[in-house]
């Protein structure tokens, strides 16, 4: 279980003579339990990417804490094999010098799993819908959807407590988006992992998430279960729903 507790974050603009600080996140608190899928919805500039960086523990907030199963995620060993992430930019998510195999092995090696690696990799690749022959390919030889599948295989390899998806499907074609969403649904059923889905695309979020968190200007506007989405109260959430291009 992930618990975010009263988190504040601001950045300093260090000028030569004066330094000013800009508040990005203000008093953000929420929880995500094991096996739940939480969607964080916001526009660009709302601070949701900053929140993403805090949630994977690579940046620290000024105030507040983020705990996983009662332990702070800002300690490296607490993150190991518990948190994973899939990013938006599939072109830079995999080290260009690594083959698909090296990339998937990385988190396994980090927790000292050395046995049956070949079998594990084949199994993971099949699970994300790729043929095992992909393991000798380099990232630049993969299409966007394939690269994102490899990233998902890498993320689920250690069966973490939760995976963060930072706009993970936004730069894919719509038909590929659906494939990836279906894959994620399927994986969630078999692994019981928690998902945190950061996105601006509310339609895709409702497809997979159990609960939605509407985020604006670094604050949580509203948290609502997906099935009650039509009952949103905050004016911003209403505007968000009104401004959609539907099919």
């Amino acid at each position: 279980m992930l618990k975010v507790d009263h988190v504040d974050k601001s950045y300093n603009n260090n000028g030569f003579f004066k330094s000013s600080s800009r508040k990005i996140l203000e008093d953000v608190s929420f929880e995500c339990s094991q096996g739940e899928c939480l969607g964080i919805i916001g526009e660009s500039g709302s601070g949701k990417s900053t929140l993403g960086r805090l949630l994977i523990g690579i940046e620290r907030p000024e105030r507040g804490s983020i705990m996983i199963n009662g332990e702070s995620i800002f300690k490296r060993k607490n993150r190991k094999s518990k948190i994973s992430v899939v990013f938006q930019d599939y072109r830079s998510s995999i080290n260009p010098f690594f083959t698909v195999e090296d990339a998937i092995l990385e988190p396994l090696r980090a927790i000292n799993i050395e046995e049956n690696l070949a079998v594990i990799i084949d199994k993971l690749l099949i699970q994300v819908g790729l043929s095992p022959s992909y393991k000798h390919k380099y990232p630049h030889e993969l299409s966007g959807g394939e690269a994102q599948r490899v990233c998902i295989a890498r993320a689920i390899s250690t069966e973490p407590s939760y995976i963060l998806f930072d706009e993970a499907i936004s730069s894919l074609d719509v038909s590929i988006q659906l494939q990836i969403l279906d894959l994620l649904k399927e994986l969630k059923n078999s692994y019981k992992m928690g998902y945190i889905f950061i996105t601006h695309d509310i339609q895709a979020a409702t497809y997979i998430c159990d609960r939605l968190l509407i985020f604006k200007d670094g604050r949580v506007q509203e948290t609502i279960p997906t099935k009650d989405l039509h009952l949103v109260e905050s004016p911003y959430a209403k505007k968000l729903l009104k401004n959609l291009i539907l099919f």
Partner: peptide
Amino acid sequence: TRSTISDNFIKLMERS
């Protein structure tokens, strides 16, 4: 594929 994503959403919203 496009309507699968949208339909789910529209179904949710039809209630209002």
